[in-house]
C-alpha cells in the first residue's frame, strides 16, 4: 500500500537501485511486460473482439438500416417481452434473495450448507436442463399437462413458462451477492436495534437495508443482465413464435438463421449495450463502495 501511495504522489524519478542484479521479489522487466502483453492480447482476441464485431456488424450497412431494423413489429414485441419478463422475475428474485440471505446469514440451523448448495444449483446446471424440468412438469405430456389443458391455462410455449425458466436461472444472483456480505456484517447491529425496542420490520428497513443497499443493487444489476440475456432455458420453453413468445435473444437466433445479419446484430447490439452499462455500474460500485460489497469478487 505504502509503495503505491509514494508512486502516486512522488513524481520524482526513482533513485537508481544500489544493486545491479534483479530484485528477488519481482520479476525482471522483460518478463513483466511479456506477461502483460500476453494478458492484453489474449483478452483482446477472446473477449473484446466479439464485443467490437457486434457493433461493427450492426452498423455495417449504415445508421439508417440499423434503426430501420427495429421497425419490425415482431422485433418490438420481442423487446417488450424481454422487458416484461425481467420486470416480473427480477423483483421476485429480489425478495427471495433478501429472505434467503437473512435466513442464512443471521441464524445457525441444521441443513444450512445443503440450503446454500441448493441456491447455487442453477450456476452449475445446464440452462437447457433448467428449461426441460418445466416442460416435464407443465408440458402437454407433463405431470400437470392434462390439468392445465382442461382449465385452459398455458404455461409452456407461453409467457408464464418463460418467466419460470428465467427465475430458475437468475434467482441465485442476488442471494449469492448478499449472503457473504451479511455474514461479514454479523448480527450485532440487528441485536442492538432489537434490544433498543425496534420491531423486526423496523430493524430490517432502518438497520439492515441501509447496510446492504449497495450489495443489493449490485446483485440486481447482475440478475437483470442475465434475465434479459438468458437463451438456453428460455429457448426450451418458449416455442419460438415470433411476435408472441420470442424474447430478444431468441429473436437474434431466428434473424441470424434467416441470414438477416444486420437485424440480428442490431438486436444483439442492444443487449451488448445493456451488458456494457451493467459492467460500467458494476465497476463504479466496486470503485466507490468496495468496502460495502464484501465478497463481490467471489463468484
Amino acid at each position: 500500500m505504502y509503495e503505491q501511495d509514494v508512486a502516486v504522489y512522488d513524481s520524482r524519478p526513482s533513485p537508481e537501485p544500489a544493486y545491479k542484479h534483479a530484485r528477488p521479489t519481482t520479476e525482471r522487466t522483460w518478463i513483466k511486460w511479456t506477461l502483460i502483453g500476453i494478458a492484453v492480447a489474449f483478452m483482446a482476441l477472446i473477449i473484446l473482439l466479439p464485443l467490437v464485431i457486434v457493433f461493427v456488424e450492426a452498423f455495417r450497412k449504415g445508421v439508417e438500416t440499423y434503426f430501420k431494423s427495429f421497425n419490425d413489429p415482431k422485433s418490438l414485441a420481442a423487446i417488450q417481452l424481454t422487458l416484461t419478463v425481467a420486470a416480473i422475475s427480477v423483483p421476485l428474485n429480489l425478495v427471495f434473495g433478501v429472505a434467503a440471505a437473512w435466513c442464512v446469514a443471521k441464524y445457525e440451523f441444521w441443513g444450512k450448507s445443503f440450503l446454500i448448495t441448493l441456491i447455487d444449483l442453477p450456476f452449475s446446471v445446464s440452462p437447457v436442463v433448467s428449461g426441460l424440468v418445466y416442460v416435464l412438469l407443465f408440458g402437454a405430456q407433463g405431470w400437470f399437462g392434462p390439468f392445465l389443458k382442461a382449465n385452459g391455462i398455458e404455461i409452456i410455449f407461453a409467457v408464464p413458462g418463460i418467466v419460470l425458466a428465467t427465475i430458475f436461472v437468475t434467482f441465485p444472483f442476488i442471494a449469492r451477492e448478499l449472503i457473504p456480505l451479511m455474514q461479514d456484517q454479523g448480527t450485532g447491529d440487528e441485536e442492538a436495534a432489537i434490544s433498543l425496542g425496534a420491531t423486526g420490520w423496523q430493524t430490517f428497513w432502518r438497520v439492515t437495508l441501509p447496510n446492504i443497499k449497495w450489495g443489493l443493487l449490485y446483485g440486481v444489476l447482475l440478475c437483470n443482465a442475465r434475465a434479459m440475456g438468458e437463451f438456453g432455458a428460455v429457448s426450451v420453453v418458449s416455442g419460438h413464435i415470433r411476435g408472441k413468445t420470442n424474447t430478444m435473444p431468441l429473436d437474434i437466433e431466428i434473424l441470424y438463421n434467416e441470414y438477416n445479419f444486420t437485424a440480428a446484430f442490431a438486436m444483439a447490439s442492444l443487449l451488448a449495450a445493456l451488458a456494457l452499462v451493467t459492467l460500467l455500474f458494476k465497476t463504479i460500485l466496486e470503485f466507490r463502495f468496495g468496502d460495502e460489497l464484501a465478497g463481490t469478487r467471489r463468484h
Binding site: F231, A272, A275, L276, L279
Partner: peptide
Amino acid sequence: LDAVVDLPFALPTAVAGIA
C-alpha cells in the same frame, strides 16, 4: 482490463455466439 474480464458474465450467450 479488470472490467473487461467480467464481460462474458454480462454479455448474453446468444450475442456471444453470433459474434
